[in-house]
Amino acid sequence: MERLTPRVRIVWLVLAVVRAAILGGLLIGGAIALSRIEIADAAPVPLVPSAAGLAVVLAIVRIAIAWRRYGVWRFELRDDDLYIRRGVFTRTKTVVPFVRVQHVDSRRSPLERTVGLATVVVYTAGSRSSDVAIPGLTPARAEALQESLRRLAIESEGEDAV
């Protein structure tokens, strides 16, 4: 079982912090707006501090999840299929037979480029969440993975999926 590059944690943590900041901003902003307008009685609880507290708790949870995600993520190219294990709360083990691979993308977001990482996305004709992305790969590994997936998909030459 192959693990992701540890640097991927930076990407996830930055994303978690940014998202938590946006959500926290909305929460605190909403609380401030609520406390400004005159409701019938003064709010029984101090709105702004509790909103800030909630935002901090949510941020910590997000960061913890982002950190934990790295520990769970595994993938493996087996004989006939791509096997992926992931998920902090919902543990998902996905099997994608090479026969079913439609095409393979490799993509790099700005954040990933600064850290020097890439993501490989494997598409199937399936309708549910069976298109899988493997994040946190070094560009060389991503290229190699894309290449071997492509080769394996061609070798297995299945008939039409649909």
Binding site: K93, T124, S130
Partner: peptide, 14 residues
């Protein structure tokens, strides 16, 4: 006809 097989366990299922 199977495209992919998913084995999912939520925190409660686990």
């Amino acid at each position: 006809r199977v495209q992919a097989v998913l084995h999912e366990a939520t925190i409660f299922q686990r």
